[in-house]
Amino acid sequence: MIKAHPTDAMLHAYVAGELNSASALVVSTHLDMCPHCRRMANAVEEELACEFESAPAAQLDGDDMHLMLDAIFSSSASKFDTEVSPYPAQAEAQAPVKPKDAMITLEGKRFQLPRSLANQKHRIGPWSKMMGNMWRAPINLGTDEVANLIYMDRATSVPEHTHRGTELQLVINGVFKDEYGSYSDGDMLVLDHTHQHTPETTDEDCLILAVMDAPLHFTSGISRLLNPFSSLFFR
C-alpha cells in the first residue's frame, strides 16, 4: 500500500508540463506504480484541457491561417512515421515493454523497472559503489539535472544529513526507513532542508530513484567530514 504520494500542487505542475525533466521522471514513474495518483492526474488533465478549451481565444487572421494550413498540408509525414519517430516514448507506449527488457541486474539481484524507467533504460549508466553497501547508477537525461538509481543493500545506513535543495525519492523496490517512517514500493518522498534524517535499511534491501537539485549536507559527528565530498555521491 503506497503511503507517500506527490502533493496536489506537484501533480498539477506535472500535468501542466511545468516540472523539470528529472522531477517529471519521478512523478511519471510514481504514476506507473500508483493507480490513485493516475486517476488524480487524469482528472487534472481534463481540468486543464477544459481551461484550455474555454479560455478566451486569440485573434488569428485569415491570411495567417491559410499560410499555416498550407504549411501543414505540405509537411512531410515521415517525421511521424513510427519507424523513425523522434518520440520514442510514444512508439513504445503502443507496444508494452517486455518484462525481460524492464529488468536490471545488480549484485546478482534482478529488479523489474516500472515502465517510465524501463523506457529510459538506455540512459542508465554503470553502477559504482558508494560508501558502505550502497551502489549508484546515474541516469543521463541529457539535461543538467541529477538523477540516480540508488541501491542500498540490507542493513545499510546513510549518515544523518539534510538536503540543501529539494530531493525527490521514489522507492522502486524494497524498504527503507528514517526518523519519520518506513517507505516501500511506490512511496515518493519530497525532502528539503527541513528534513534532517538518517535513512537505513534493515532486513530488506532497497532500490530508489533519487533526483536532486543540490548535494546532501551531512549534519552529525564525523560524517560532517563527508560534506566536502558529498557532491561525489551524486554526480
Binding site: 517529471a24 511519471s28 492526474a41 510514444q90 507506449a93 523506457n119 537525461l141 539535461t143
Partner: peptide
C-alpha cells in the same frame, strides 16, 4: 536530451 513525450504520455 529527454523529450517531453518521454515524460508525459499523450492523453494518458
Amino acid at each position: 536530451e529527454i523529450s517531453a513525450d518521454e515524460l508525459w504520455p499523450i492523453l494518458s
